[in-house]
Design a protein around this nucleic acid. Structure first.
Length: 113
DNA sequence: CGACTGACGCCGA
DNA sequence: CTCGGCGCCAGTC
């Protein structure tokens, strides 16, 4: 099967465990698309509503929520994260505490590509 | 074909 | 901390 870039990105996002967050660049790297962080953003925007995807676990490299503070999207994302115990302050998360550091072996087992 | 546009990232000032 | 600039690339106009 011909895993498109979007498919790889979605699979990688699904691999993020609850209570942890990853950055766009990180997702791009794990998906085999180094330097294509913007493509990750595009891919998340293309996600069908009926597909379950923890898109809210994806943040900017500095831990900030990608949406403008106070916007609908930002509030929704903040809520979803806090439900999992992730602390969100001033529209941002401390990656030092909640950043996802995947185990390479398990990552490969999950993504299989 | 070129110009513009993003749920981005990094480096330098 | 803020700004500006450049790299990135699939879509859109």
């Amino acid at each position: 099967m011909k895993a498109s870039n979007y498919t790889k990105i979605w699979q990688t996002v699904q691999a993020i465990p609850p209570g942890k967050v990853a950055s766009y660049g990180q997702i791009a790297d794990f998906a085999g698309l180094p330097g294509r962080a913007r493509l990750v953003g595009k891919a998340l925007g293309m996600v069908p509503d009926d597909m379950q995807l923890p898109w809210y676990r994806v943040l900017r490299a500095n831990g900030q929520i990608a949406f403008p503070s106070g916007s609908k999207g930002a509030e929704e994302q903040k809520g979803k994260l806090q439900e999992e115990g992730v602390v969100v302050l001033n529209n941002r998360v401390r990656l030092q505490d909640f950043g996802w550091r995947p185990d390479l072996a398990e990552l490969l087992f999950t993504l299989k590509f």
